[in-house]
Amino acid sequence: MSKTKIYRYLDLQNKYPLDPEGYLVNQAEWDKSVASLMAEEEGLTLTAEHWEVIEVVRAFYQRYEMAPAMRPLVKATKNALGEEKGRSIYLMQLFPGSPAKRIARLAGLPKPTNCL
């Protein structure tokens, strides 16, 4: 997706370009440190609970080639991490606001299509 417009950079060294909505322009550049930088910018500290959900979303994308909207995100989390965590309240607590969009961003994926 090299055609995506660069809007600004995540870091001061101008290494990681972001699109106008703050998503990573070059998905291949993603690693955990990129995710941490993004989270820091959002005022979020990533814990083990955050990381396992980010992994769920990355696996979802790998399999279906799309980032999940909220409903399938809950289902995928439930399948991977169990009933307790596979609930929208839990995901809202970890990633307040719009969990589907925030997690996709932190996971270095494009914005979920069909997202509300």
């Binding site: 979802f60 399999r63 279906y64 799309m66 909207a69 409903r71 399938p72 289902k75 995928a76």
Partner: peptide, 11 residues
Amino acid sequence: LPTIDMLEMYD
């Protein structure tokens, strides 16, 4: 195909 497979995640 990935989208067809994904349908079940949307119930």
